[in-house]
């Protein structure tokens, strides 16, 4: 009787999960508890904590921009992977197609670069 090759992954996942959950749960039990109002406040180096983190939930635009860029390039990678794996089969045709593809992504990249999308300030 043999298991699917994916089963061990799940197995390791399960063990790790069990361990991690046990840890976080046991910390509640093992540790002491001494109530202190200040202790439960958000930590801001001793000053009065601001009521809402980062200006009322407004997150700097740069992070969104980075997220979007990531998605674009991650998708590019998604296409690169299978192409790379079967590179030898696809031959010159695949190469030309991929050059076009990368060129197209590069167009976007150049645009973002020139417009300062990659600058973090």
């Amino acid at each position: 009787m043999s298991l699917s090759p994916y089963v061990p992954i799940i197995g390791l996942f399960a063990i790790a999960a069990a361990f991690a959950l046990f840890s976080v749960a046991s910390a509640r039990i093992a540790g002491p508890r001494r109530y202190n109002k200040a202790k439960l406040d958000a930590y801001e180096c001793g000053i009065e904590p601001s009521p809402e983190p980062v200006g009322g939930g407004r997150i700097p635009i740069k992070f969104y921009l980075t997220a979007m860029l990531f998605i674009v390039f991650d998708i590019e990678i998604i296409f690169l992977f299978p192409w790379a794996v079967s590179f030898d089969l696809l031959g010159a045709f695949g190469f030309v197609e991929m050059v076009l593809f990368i060129a197209a992504v590069f167009v976007a990249y150049a645009y973002v670069w020139r417009r300062g999308g990659l600058d973090w300030d």
């Binding site: 540790g31 439960l40 406040d41 930590y43």
Partner: peptide
């Protein structure tokens, strides 16, 4: 040592 530290759950 960490296991026997208090587990703080912040208010917010």
């Amino acid at each position: 040592k960490m296991a026997f530290k208090e587990d703080i759950l912040p208010k917010a």
